[in-house]
Design a protein around this nucleic acid. Structure first.
Lengths: 208, 208
DNA sequence: CTGCAAGATTGCAGTCACTGCAAGTTTCCG
DNA sequence: CGGAAACTTGCAGTGACTGCAATCTTGCAG
């Protein structure tokens, strides 16, 4: 009732969310201070006020704590994609959805910056992150396939579009974070998507 | 002298290559038969006729055995990229290099198929593979930056081009393997690269 | 409000990947 | 031939992660 989420928020649910947040906060603090690899689950658990064993009831691995928001964002992407008008062109739908989701990123800038810094020094976290991005690819590919009226398995184009656009988004976000995340992310992404639609052949034309 | 590689092939070097191959063969066999995760390093070592500890003198992790050829291929890519004429346009150089490297893939089809099958059931291997692909990105981005006369750090375009083209290559290769790897991979890749150069706006035009 | 079912926490014991170290062995090369 | 350098191996240890079973908490029906 007083919470932001859906209607029913029982004690149980609230407590769980609270513990989860405690774990994430504790973990990110440790990772930032002493690095990812040297930090043990035991330490994180202690900081979060739980037993080590309990940690694994919340996250399947240490790396997943850094990517805690991933599932939520994927759900959001699917949701936004589904809400797009049916007569919209495939690329336009994907573009609009990605830009809409990018808006959320602006508010999470600080959290993203922290995650990016951790990832820079922890290859396994980056690896996991990239692997998760394939779920985004899948979501986008399906939408493109439907709108293109083809089968995802038989026609390469849906996956091609999905992979390519997401790669562009990834690089753009990375550059945005590297620049401090102060400027307009959606605008950067729009530029990148423009380039893709227009074709890489025009790469030398203007300095983005 | 009798080996394919460079001039001097001492006993040491030859033996090392032989052991390495034994490990890869043993590992891939096990992974295929009983799955990646259930296979232990101990088993692989036993099959390859070495001590478990020695395994880690050859590969830093279990997943890396599946991607054993990665380093060599990356070196090959750099090499091919470096050999491209200096006056060639950035995209043309990258395109030519990727197509050239794709030729090698044809001969390694069987090995690639095995690796792909293992990866399909082992997320951590896929993760590692994607992470390694960032090294390819780096290599390509640098070349594009030089040919574009810009700085890799300040201008997003080099990384953008690199990430996008590699994403396309990845999806194309995947589709090729899924189809059994019998048809012409370079042709598939050329088609994908054409699409990128022409722009995704033309996605609905022809069925690739 | 009471009691039971479902869910959550925890400890325990165990497996396995991976590491540093040091001792022993093999290859290289002058 | 003899020592330097590289390779192999065993040992001991750390730490992520899992299954199991006991215990406790919350939700809900009566």
């Amino acid at each position: 009732m007083d919470d932001a989420q859906a209607g029913t928020t029982g004690l149980r649910e609230r407590k769980r969310a609270q513990t989860r947040r405690a774990i994430v906060d504790a973990a990110l603090a440790r990772f930032t201070e002493q690095g990812f690899s040297p930090t043990t689950v035991e330490q994180i658990a202690a900081d979060a006020g739980i037993a080590p064993r309990t940690f694994f009831h919340y996250f399947p691995s240490k790396e997943d704590v850094v990517l805690a928001d991933h599932d939520g964002r994927l759900a959001r992407l699917r949701e936004v994609l589904a809400r797009r008008p049916a007569d919209e062109a495939p690329l336009a739908a994907v573009r609009a959805a990605l830009l809409e989701v990018a808006d959320d990123y602006l508010e999470e800038r600080d959290r993203l910056l922290v995650a990016a810094r951790i990832m820079a020094g922890a290859p396994t976290v980056l690896a996991r992150s990239l692997e998760r991005q394939t779920h985004w690819e899948e979501a986008i590919a399906e939408v493109v396939a439907v709108r293109l009226g083809v089968d995802v398995v038989r026609d390469v184009r849906p996956r091609l579009v999905a992979a390519v656009t997401l790669a562009a988004m990834r690089v753009t976000q990375r550059a945005w974070l590297a620049a401090g995340g102060t400027d307009d992310l959606p605008e950067r992404m729009a530029d990148a998507l423009d380039l893709l639609e227009r074709g890489l052949g025009s790469i030398a034309d203007q300095p983005v």
